[in-house]
Design a protein around this nucleic acid. Structure first.
Lengths: 209, 209
DNA sequence: TATTTAACGTGACATTTGTCACTTCTTTTC
DNA sequence: GAAAAGAAGTGACAAATGTCACGTTAAATA
């Protein structure tokens, strides 16, 4: 199986090459030193996997990955990063990178390489928890005032968050339209908001799956 | 290395066991048939990895994983799912599961197992894109109608999405309140929505960071 | 038992939002 | 240059939303 390594530090590239070629059935067919090398090397060799540093002088690994993936979305690109406090993870996942690993412990790169080659996605343990969808919508992030809502009020809030109007909410919850209006009014008061639209925004911010 | 398999279908468990023990240096030390088995088996054997079905009769794999992880957060649990349209992925990531794979292609389970054992996280390619922070805010996911909006309309939409009322939008964009109303009306028409609240919901769904 | 408190409802009213027909101005196109 | 298309505005009107004072019921408490 063919592999390309792209890293602006030749020491990293060569130790990676050494480790990979000694432990598995991969051949490093090319080594690049900048993101700009990724596209031409990819087209020339059509490797099974690309291992690429995310921080490089001229063109970043992210840009390079984006270019390659827009050309070939199934390309198996693993980005390597030095720091775990990494804000690029979301963008990397979005463009379709198949792996995102810390450079640190080299020995875990081999199994990750295998997993990516077999079609899975692999991410460093320290990195995956940077995803906002994991941290945001837990009930611990709810404002204190939310606790003061009655069950009915929470139901109404939920339906406002779906975009229903008062009549529709009334029908769904078997209450009168007047009551719904009242209930919405109470919600606005309790949550210190000014309109039903702001209620919906509140709901989505806190409860979006 | 020790492994536990938990699946309510004995056919699945035994074929997994066969594959794993033939291809790698793992020993399946126990097989459970329900989520409720996870905790006692984990405590008894302290396995390196747990492979567990997510859908089981009595207790789900998710609940079981949650129990084990609250006892031992570093436990390496891989959940297996049958369907890729899987809404549990977020909750699974949140509780700290280290892998989430489709049962389908058995052969990719071995490399994934290795990667997880070496400390990485592994997710099936079909699954990772269920994360809302990945799927929502790309411009490719925008409905075709969005392209028909004028610049002004996009600005108004943005402010509706912040919860501003017509007067406030008019002041911000230096236009009359009547124009804003008109603009909102056009937005509703173009996007086939029925109220400003639904506009805000539309905005948040597509543009939330 | 009497009192308080909270959930829920009602109806009148004020305000905000949404619709529609029509105008103005600009750009594009023939 | 005339016609067409579309972005933006105006004003009158209709509909939905939000507010308020007040009523009913039921549970909690003195």
């Amino acid at each position: 199986m063919k592999l390309i390594i792209i890293d602006d530090d030749p020491i990293v590239s060569s130790s990676l090459k050494k480790i990979i070629e000694s432990h598995s059935n991969y051949t490093v067919v090319a080594i690049g030193t900048d993101g700009a090398d990724a596209m031409p090397l990819f087209i020339q060799y059509l490797p099974d996997v690309i291992l690429m540093d995310i921080q490089m002088k001229h063109q970043s690994g992210l840009e390079a990955a984006s270019a390659v993936l827009s050309f070939q979305p199934s390309a198996k690109i693993i980005l390597l990063t030095t720091f775990s406090d990494d804000e690029y993870i979301i963008e990397a996942l979005r463009i379709g990178v198949k792996g995102y690993l810390l450079k640190q412990n080299f020995q875990s790169i081999i199994p990750s390489l295998e997993a990516v080659a077999s079609g899975q996605h692999v991410y460093g343990a320290e990195i995956i928890h940077k995803l906002p969808s994991l941290s945001s919508p837990t009930k611990y992030s709810l404002p204190a005032q939310y606790e003061s809502l009655s069950e009915k009020e929470k139901e109404v809030l939920t339906l406002v968050g779906q975009g229903l109007n008062n009549k529709e909410i009334a029908d769904s919850l078997h209450m009168s339209e007047g009551s719904v209006r009242n209930c919405v009014s109470t919600l606005l008061d309790k949550l210190s908001l000014k309109s039903r639209t702001q209620l919906a925004i509140f709901f989505l911010k806190h409860f979006r799956k």
